[in-house]
Design a protein around this nucleic acid. Structure first.
Length: 608
RNA sequence: GCGCCCGUAGCUCAGUUGGAUAGAGCAUCGGCCUUCUAAGCCGAGGGUCGCAGGUUCGACUCCUGCCGGGCGCGCCA
């Protein structure tokens, strides 16, 4: 899967993108010319012609494209919509691309493509190959897509998997639309969570030293902590071992003894620092972080989710980015002191309350790092900062936007997509997940169970703002219930046809096929051509809406159009022109499926 | 209480930024393998688009108010 996904996208980028003009733009030009012609007579001279209301039809009975412009301009033209539509159609320049234009319903103008124009898409697909569908609508603007950014305190679980699959697909889509895309993972390596991780590892290490004690209620209890502890034992020997009495003497009670688990874990952290020294503690902490980050990167890489940069929160403090951000706020007079803390006047910028940036104890808040990080992204020259966040982070968006505005950066440069939660179902029952208790299902386990293709596919099959029920049985079933195979099967079938072609002693003559596209006139062929023609528009739409699920649905419809045709018609026939035209169409369908699946990070197999 | 998201067929969900008779998959029922892969195809049934108003030529889509579900509202990260 790795070898099929990323390199495919990369090689597509290297190909020259010839802009064979999509059909929609051609028709828009015709319509524009007609309306311009009517200005001053039927239509007002100063009428802006920005939106022509031209769209793909749902039903080809209404043509390939339809415009509602006559209905919307009827009032200004002081004419009934159908009458205005007639004048527009009369003013339409002649074009070989159009078979006919009809007026229908309340005043729709329906455009029917000529068969030759419809079949032209096959030629374009063969010309452009992996670049078919890619376009320059992004204008090479620079966008930083930040996603997953899970706390490095344990393995990635199934929720992170959705973020990974969604973020990677959105990034691919943006790239296909001509954006300059940078993929980034923000590592929260500066906070208390990391201390809890470090102390959890150390305590498991102490157990290996022979220590006997109750593990803190608030510690990380997963098996991975023991593995890291074993690693620590190998690297550090017994040099970090300390007797139980020194470690646990005079500590407050933990939760099971009626105490507070937060207070208790903080006390254990304090004791660990005291006994190991700051440097010793940092050693444990660094080892734990490195182990977990290596595991996460490996996990994501195997999943086809690859980053340009892993950005450390600690480095923000070390390279002065936090101080720079606070300086900007101070200079603009957007901070004040209260109760010994430093507050950011977020309410000035539409947030619901002011926010602390430096605590009474002098420690900078997580929020201070956040706005510093976003300022730093802007300093690196990114036009759009796309944050893919969990839906529980929605309150955070207004805050960071306020921060950006206060620092003199446009708040619209931050775009946040909130991804809803994932529920895992096994045998119709919801599987529970809790990191602390260590009973979660990891992304790695999920991938092992259902495979990368099914996982990548199922994660993006729903809109990101829709709660996702992930059905394990369905995802791993190798039956017709599983939609991943439906699309892959269409791809494999074309490969199979080519194998059969060779077995029957024929050779593909693509030139003859492309010259014979006029033979593709059946209802199924016409439907497939229409579907292929929609692909470039779909890529633009899915990119603009950050909606990989739209691509999933498109590919299903495309596969359906293909399978229907496959069942209706034999491709390998006697007549050379017909045979090669059909093969050219089949190959074009295969190419578009491959292009679409590549954007989703799903493989396109030759056999199934 | 305030804020964000969701509510569409028995189930899970699309719905091209306000268009034409609201669509898929699964499930149910009925057909199609001497022909390129049946992981496929064809057909049937199934709907008060949560409820009530409003905006206009036209509303699943926009506005208001309810009802129901999820998630957030720390000098935590």
């Amino acid at each position: 899967m790795r070898s099929r996904t990323r390199p495919g996208a990369a090689s597509a980028r290297r190909q020259p993108v010839r802009l064979a003009p999509p059909m929609k733009q051609d028709i828009e030009q015709l319509l524009h010319a007609a309306l311009a012609h009517l200005k001053g007579s039927v239509l007002p001279e100063d009428l802006p012609l920005s939106n022509l209301g031209l769209e793909r039809t749902r039903d080809t009975a209404n043509g390939d494209y339809a415009s509602n412009v006559a209905m919307r301009l009827a009032k200004q033209a002081k004419l009934p919509p159908r009458e205005l539509a007639q004048k527009i159609v009369a003013a339409l320049p002649l074009s070989p691309a159009l078979a006919r234009v009809e007026i229908a319903g309340a005043g729709f103008i329906n455009f029917f493509l000529a068969g030759s124009a419809q079949a032209d898409v096959v030629r374009r697909v063969h010309e452009l190959g992996a670049a078919f569908g890619r376009n320059g609508s992004g204008g090479n603007r620079r966008i930083l897509v930040e996603f997953v950014s899970s706390n490095p305190t344990g393995p990635l679980h199934v929720g992170h998997g959705r973020h990974g699959a969604f973020g990677a697909s959105v990034a691919n889509l943006l790239e296909a639309n001509g954006w300059s895309v940078h993929r980034e993972y923000y590592i929260n390596d500066a906070g208390r969570q990391v201390d809890i991780l470090a102390v959890s590892v150390w305590l498991r290490y102490l157990e290996a030293c022979g220590g006997k004690f109750r593990f803190p209620a608030n510690g990380y209890q997963g098996d991975y902590v023991r593995e890291i502890a074993a690693d620590l034992l190998q690297k550090a020997g017994e040099s970090l071992c300390r007797p139980d009495g020194e470690v646990f003497g005079n500590l407050p009670a933990d939760e099971p003894e009626g105490g507070d688990k937060e207070t208790y874990i903080d006390a254990v952290i304090g004791r660990a620092r005291q006994l190991l020294g700051d440097q010793g503690f940092r050693e444990v902490s660094d080892l734990a972080l490195a182990a977990i980050l290596a595991d996460m990167e490996n996990d994501l890489t195997e999943f086809g989710v690859i980053y340009d940069r892993w950005y450390s929160e600690r480095s923000l403090a070390e390279n002065g980015a936090i101080d720079r951000a606070l300086d900007r706020l101070r200079k603009q007079d957007h901070v004040y002191e209260k109760g010994g803390a430093l507050w950011f006047r977020a309410t000035t910028f539409g947030d619901e309350k002011d926010r602390v940036v430096v605590r009474e104890n002098g420690v900078k808040t997580y929020f201070a790092s956040d706005i510093a990080y976003h300022l730093e992204k802007r300093e690196r020259g990114f036009d759009v900062l796309l944050d893919i966040l969990g839906s529980d982070h929605h309150g955070y968006v207004a805050r960071v936007k306020a921060g950006l505005a206060a620092m003199g950066e446009p708040p619209e440069s931050l775009e946040a997509l909130l991804v809803q939660f994932v529920s895992l179902y096994r045998n119709g029952e919801k599987a529970s997940m809790s990191t602390r208790a260590g009973e979660f299902i990891t992304l790695r386990q999920l991938r092992a169970e259902v495979g990368n293709d099914a996982a990548r596919f199922f994660y993006v099959v729903r809109s990101h703002d829709q709660h996702l029920d992930f059905d394990l049985e369905l995802a791993k079933s190798r039956t017709n219930e599983n939609p991943v195979y439906y699309i892959q099967y269409a791809h494999a079938r074309v490969a199979s046809v080519l194998r059969q072609l060779a077995a029957k002693g024929y050779q593909l003559d693509l030139a003859l096929g492309l010259a014979s596209l006029a033979t593709l006139t059946s209802q199924q062929e016409s439907a497939l051509l229409t579907q292929l023609g929609k692909y470039p528009e779909l890529i633009q739409l899915a990119g603009a809406n950050r909606a990989p699920h739209a691509l999933v649905h498109y590919l299903r419809d495309l596969a359906n159009a293909f399978h229907t045709w496959y069942n209706a018609e034999q491709f390998i026939v006697e007549d050379a022109a017909t045979r090669n035209a059909r093969l050219a169409l089949a190959l074009a369908a295969q190419q578009v499926i491959r292009n679409g699946l590549a954007l989703l990070g799903v493989s396109a197999p030759e056999t199934m």
